[in-house]
């Protein structure tokens, strides 16, 4: 991922920041600058809590270029408690039987250990909810 692009995405990558349309109240992740429902540009950043349930999951056995050093890895789609569905890597799942519907939470991890220019790409992933209160 190109450095300026990664920088532009950092808030959504690091902490799952999306947007909210102030006209129709719809929440978006990924954030959108223009609400596709009402075409309003009156949108503001919205911080998702990072909790959700697993909608589906699979494993990437043949990682795309740039992801080989962390592969193979699990990926999933997560239904956030605020509504949107997010596609993401899953982490801390070695030895875990993944089940659709299980509770998961967002953590910030390394997505790419080393891009072509040597920097590290950090971003959201989901892991099975840590047992106990939070």
């Amino acid at each position: 991922m190109q450095l300026p692009r990664y920088h532009r995405l950092r808030r959504s990558f690091y902490r799952l920041e999306g947007t909210r349309c102030n006209r129709c109240d719809r929440l978006f992740f990924p954030g959108r600058r223009i609400c596709p429902d009402c075409r309003s540009q009156d949108v503001e950043p919205y911080q998702f809590r990072g909790r959700g349930t697993l909608y589906s999951f699979t494993n990437v056995q043949q990682p795309p270029r740039g992801f080989g050093s962390i592969g193979p890895y699990a990926v999933g789609m997560v239904r956030l408690e605020e509504g949107p569905l997010v596609t993401s890597q899953l982490t801390d799942v070695d030895g875990v039987d993944l089940v659709i519907g299980m509770e998961v939470e967002m953590v910030t991890r390394k997505i790419q250990d080393s891009s072509e220019h040597g920097y590290i790409v950090y971003g959201y992933k989901f892991r099975p909810l840590l047992t106990g209160a939070r």
Binding site: I70, T91, R109, K110, I111
Partner: peptide
Amino acid sequence: PGIDEDTVT
């Protein structure tokens, strides 16, 4: 550390 973890994460 997990394979995707470091001091930052």
